[in-house]
Amino acid sequence: MNRRTLLLSAIALPLMSRVALATPTRMTVYLSPTCGCCSAWVEHARTAGYDLTVIESDQEELMRQKSERGVDDALAGCHTVEVDGYTIEGHVPMEDIARLLSDRPDAIGLAVPGMPSGSAGMDMDGRVDPFDVILFSAIGERSVFASYS
């Protein structure tokens, strides 16, 4: 390798890294077209820089998506998301999704069961109920990934 090739490589590598980091992560969101809190969660995701495909679904399709992704009734929220091989169920905060994608644990994904006030998309009236973000696996393991109060 000559000096010129080495110099060009030294300049190009950081530039290529910035381009890779600037590419938004894609999400596919399955939600009811009449759900206002789901639409609010979508806005959180867009603001965080995710590239979203939103698929408006009836209740039967939403239940099918949850079932296919290993989300049982105890984990269910009102919308289901696929992002980079993981499932995000319900009103999971963006910082937890970023941590999941960075840490890459061996899991199906994250869930915020129900619709707790103060969670992403449910932050409309200023009230904040305590809630946990649950990491869940294909073999039925569950653990608290993050807690909010």
Rank of each mutant, 00 (worst) to 15 (best):
S39G: 05
R104P: 05
R69P: 04
S17F: 12
G126P: 00
C78S: 00
T47D: 07
R69L: 09
D123K: 13
D51R: 14
T23L: 14
L21R: 15
Y30V: 03
T5F: 12
D72I: 10
T25S: 13
D132C: 01
Y50W: 05
A22H: 15
C78P: 04
A12N: 03
I11K: 01
R142H: 06
R99C: 07
R127M: 08
I134N: 11
T47R: 06
A98C: 07
S39Q: 14
A10T: 13
H91G: 14
I88C: 06
V144E: 01
G90C: 10
I134E: 13
S147D: 05
L75Q: 12
M94P: 12
H79S: 07
P24T: 09
A45V: 01
R104F: 04
R64V: 14
M63Q: 15
C78I: 02
D103K: 10
A107N: 07
I88Y: 07
M124F: 14
P93G: 14
E43N: 10
Y148Q: 02
S137K: 03
P33E: 07
L62C: 08
G77T: 06
T34P: 04
C78Y: 06
V83R: 06
V71H: 09
V92M: 09
Y86C: 01
S9I: 13
P105R: 08
S137I: 02
S149R: 13
E141Y: 08
G36P: 03
G70S: 02
M94E: 15
E82N: 00
V133N: 09
I88D: 08
E56W: 02
P14M: 01
S67E: 15
S137E: 05
T87C: 01
F131R: 13
V83A: 06
L8G: 11
S147I: 04
L15T: 00
D132M: 00
Y148H: 08
A20W: 14
R46A: 06
E68A: 12
T80I: 04
D103C: 08
V133M: 08
I108H: 01
I11L: 15
F131C: 12
H44E: 12
L31R: 15
Q65K: 07
A76T: 06
D51K: 12
S39R: 14
S147Q: 09
T47I: 00
M115V: 00
A146H: 04
V54M: 04
K66T: 08
